[in-house]
Write a protein that binds this DNA or RNA. Structure first.
Lengths: 155, 155
DNA sequence: ATCAATATGGCAATTAGTTGTCATATTGAC
DNA sequence: GTCAATATGACAACTAATTGCCATATTGAT
């Protein structure tokens, strides 16, 4: 194995710190999510799918899985469970006979709203005494990182 | 159920966006981590534990689990696997007869270094053409959020 | 020192997550 | 249109993650 010498920039080191913090914070968010009733036994996937259907509109299982970069069958099981819970319904897909579109039911919208309120309450607590500009900048950087990774993975 | 009205601030909304992006980006990082050989079948836990042992020095299984907010037995299984791989060794713990300290072996340090290099390379790629100050600010905000959540969970 | 409450590792049981296979559907090249 | 390549959902098989339980160890209050 060749020992490649990596030249580090400040920007690169900052991104590396960011990556480390994303991974570490994910688990803390998960733990806090359980406390506030947003993360169930099914994990954060339930909320993530509700959110994608709310924002992007009806989607098929494979679409959701490809977007989230999780296995197709994980989303399939989640979708079957959500159908059973009555938070989504299966719609005929004009573009695909077999692959149904998942759409939020009114109950699903209510459940998503309820979860979002809990997250919003948490966010407002966390935001106290922090600088708005810095927070907005951080959110923007995260969105860019998100999109960069998506582009990278799609190649 | 009472419909609580939540007053939103810009800062709170920015944190909420941040939370959403952390969760979404986590899975993209995981997917990319698999590509670059940092995330194995055991998930990102392997790298996370190597990193904590490297930064914080020897730790027991319960210490690591409490810090990461993951189940104790998940870390226990990981530790047994890592011992088997020869990347850590079990040390007698002066403070606790049963609970051994986990310490990186030279091999463990090498493996961690190798993984870190791959992550650094990824980070440098992602950092190209981004503003250093903004990235550093984002990393700092993430560290603060991390610590805030930790404090919140520890109560 | 005593003892109740908590912590710990091992093991088993359970549950969640992932991968593999197959029949059918869709798409795209020609 | 034809047909090979790819996509899809169902189901099964497998693997990883989590939870439950227990025997023992530790801690802290008194």
């Amino acid at each position: 194995m060749v020992n490649q010498i990596i030249y580090r920039t400040q920007a690169g080191q900052a991104i590396e710190e960011l990556i480390v913090e994303i991974v570490a914070t994910f688990f803390l968010l998960r733990a806090q999510g359980m406390r506030i009733g947003v993360v169930s036994s099914s994990g954060e996937g339930y909320w993530s799918v509700l959110r994608l259907l709310n924002i992007k509109g009806s989607q098929t299982v494979p679409q959701l899985a490809r977007y989230r970069y999780v296995p197709r069958q994980s989303v399939q099981k989640l979708a079957n469970e959500m159908l059973n819970d009555g938070v989504i319904e299966f719609l005929n897909n004009p573009a695909h006979k077999r692959s149904k579109l998942l759409r939020l039911t009114p109950k699903g919208e209510a459940v998503f709203q309820e979860m979002s309120d809990r997250i919003a309450t948490l966010a407002e607590t966390l935001a106290e005494q922090q600088d708005t500009d810095q927070l907005q900048n951080a959110a923007n950087i995260m969105k860019q990182l998100h999109e960069q990774l998506r582009t990278m993975l799609n190649q």
